[in-house]
Design a binder for these strands. Structure first.
Lengths: 134, 134
DNA sequence: GCAGACTTAAACACTTTTCGTTAACTTTGA
DNA sequence: TCAAAGTTAACGAAAAGTGTTTAAGTCTGC
């Protein structure tokens, strides 16, 4: 039973990158070429993308795609967008403005720098008005 | 460039399952054995587990290692340990005692037998006080 | 106990992924 | 413009994942 999608090599490279090392420096440390470090990093990112998409699929199993909150949106404007889209398809969102903002912050902490959404957020909604952020 | 982690076969089976069909019924529809449906479903769940774990790893990348809760610790003593360690580095944990215990139980169910932590748990924390258990 | 639903293990052919090389290419900052 | 950083393409070998089958196993409700 393996753990995640990423191989040891991929995690190793990502950690070094997070520390700010260049591909060449990492290549020296792990004794390979910088081209190889590049491809390892690239396939790691690809795996991360696939992991996200896999969970998106899960949500779509019992929810429908409502809208996308674009990168750069003010967090406080998000509820109005979501309420508007939900109204279009006649679903009542089961959160009020405040608790919706809290849900987003809890659900995607890495997307919320202060009041600014710093990453596109896909919003899914069930018939019952439950929301998912992918 | 493939999309998610799940194969077409795996998504097919999950969709039928969501509709409430038995493995035998699905086997008849897609013309194979029920044992095969079982293994396909199982590997789909395994892939979903791995997708989640992959994203968890991502979070630990921008969090710092706070401490280790040693195997054998009483679950109810954990919050005090974490609050203490976080205070040392001047970060305010964004959970209170009760919700912290719940977070641990949800996040690492296999580590909590009754009130006893039965596996070392590495605790990570972000500047914002968000916690991850690895 | 019995039937139906589900799980498991071993084995097999097949496909995909990974890590690595070399060599040429583009981007970026001073 | 120069050097360092990063990317890309083509290729190979080894490893891992997938879909299948068959046959045996567990678990559950009646």
């Amino acid at each position: 039973m393996k753990d995640g999608l990423l191989t040891d090599r991929q995690m190793e490279v990502l950690r070094y990158r997070k520390q700010g090392l260049t591909q060449q420096q990492i290549a020296d440390i792990i004794s390979t070429s910088k081209a190889n470090v590049c491809t390892i990093e690239k396939s790691a990112m690809e795996n991360i993308r696939r992991a996200k998409e896999t969970l998106e699929f899960l949500y779509t199993l019992d929810a429908t795609h409502l809208c996308v909150i674009p990168n750069g949106t003010d967090l406080f404007e998000v509820p109005a967008i979501i309420f508007g889209e939900a109204e279009k398809i006649n679903i009542k969102v089961k959160y009020d403005t405040i608790s919706l903002i809290n849900r987003i912050r809890e659900s995607r902490p890495q997307c919320c720098k202060a009041r600014c959404i710093c990453e596109d957020i896909h919003v899914y909604i069930t018939d019952a008005g439950e929301l998912y952020f992918g």
